[in-house]
């Protein structure tokens, strides 16, 4: 079986900083794959390269089609959508307008409305706040907007960069449940970047561990969860 998303030997430089030093990873259809690692390991950089925000060397393919030379705005059309680190909501637009921007590439009103309603069933809070400016929402609510906005793009592969960052444990659990739900119900493949390694491993099928720009370990999430070195470095005991 071919992976839906595959990175091969990806390199990214920020000026003189060599942030990614040959990263390769795969995501298969219907998988939740997490990418964990310490601060500054290059997780966000990997996702930024995937979405075409930073220039990279190497190969990125979606369904065996190479996309590394495509500009960002064209990659969405191939089924790659991202909820970025720090959420990146449009602060002076309403919740609803933010979601509409997620559906920018579509013009089928009916389906867009259905997708929006689906997001509102996932996050009823957003429905209450639909006319509120996104910049005035709480951090957790903004995270819901960022995820919903990415869903509006009807991704085949959803990229989530630290969806739990700065959120209360209850909301974190809720967001992970939703990720699982999307994966099971919508058969969506998900590449999840997380600091919260324990949670990420619990909810994923497979995982990659990243250290200073390289993948150092990969395998089944369950195996990694019980791996001694992982426990010491990322799980706190």
């Amino acid at each position: 079986m071919n992976p839906v998303l595959e990175l091969e030997d990806l390199h990214v430089h920020y000026g003189s900083i060599h942030a990614l030093k040959g990263v390769s990873l795969k995501v298969f259809a219907g998988e939740i794959v997490s990418l964990i690692g310490a601060n500054g390991a290059g997780k966000t950089t990997t996702l930024r390269a995937l979405s075409g925000i930073v220039p990279c060397r190497g190969r990125i393919s979606m369904n065996s089609k190479e996309i590394q030379t495509l500009p960002s705005h064209q990659r969405v059309r191939l089924g790659l959508a991202q909820s970025p680190e720090g959420r990146g909501v449009f602060p002076l637009m309403t919740v609803e307008e933010n979601l509409d921007m997620g559906a920018f590439i579509y013009s089928d009103k009916e389906q867009i409305n259905q997708d929006r309603d689906f997001c509102f069933t996932l996050f009823p809070r957003l429905k209450e706040r639909r006319s509120q400016l996104a910049g005035t929402l709480s951090g957790g609510e903004q995270q819901m907007v960022a995820i919903s906005r990415a869903l509006m793009a009807r991704p085949q592969v959803l990229l989530l960069d630290e969806p739990s960052l700065g959120l209360a444990p209850l909301i974190v659990a809720q967001i992970f449940e939703i990720v699982k739900h999307l994966n099971e119900l919508k058969k969506m493949s998900i590449l999840l970047v997380e600091q919260n390694a324990r949670m990420a491993l619990k909810f994923s099928h497979r995982a990659y561990v990243m250290e200073t720009g390289k993948i150092t370990l990969s395998g089944n999430a369950a195996d990694l969860l019980s791996d001694d070195s992982i426990r010491r470095s990322y799980l706190g005991h």
Binding site: H73, Q74, V76, Q82, G88, V89, L92, I105
Partner: peptide, 13 residues
Amino acid sequence: QNSTVAAMLGISI
């Protein structure tokens, strides 16, 4: 408001 994210969503800057 955020051109990077706008591009990620399929908007041609």
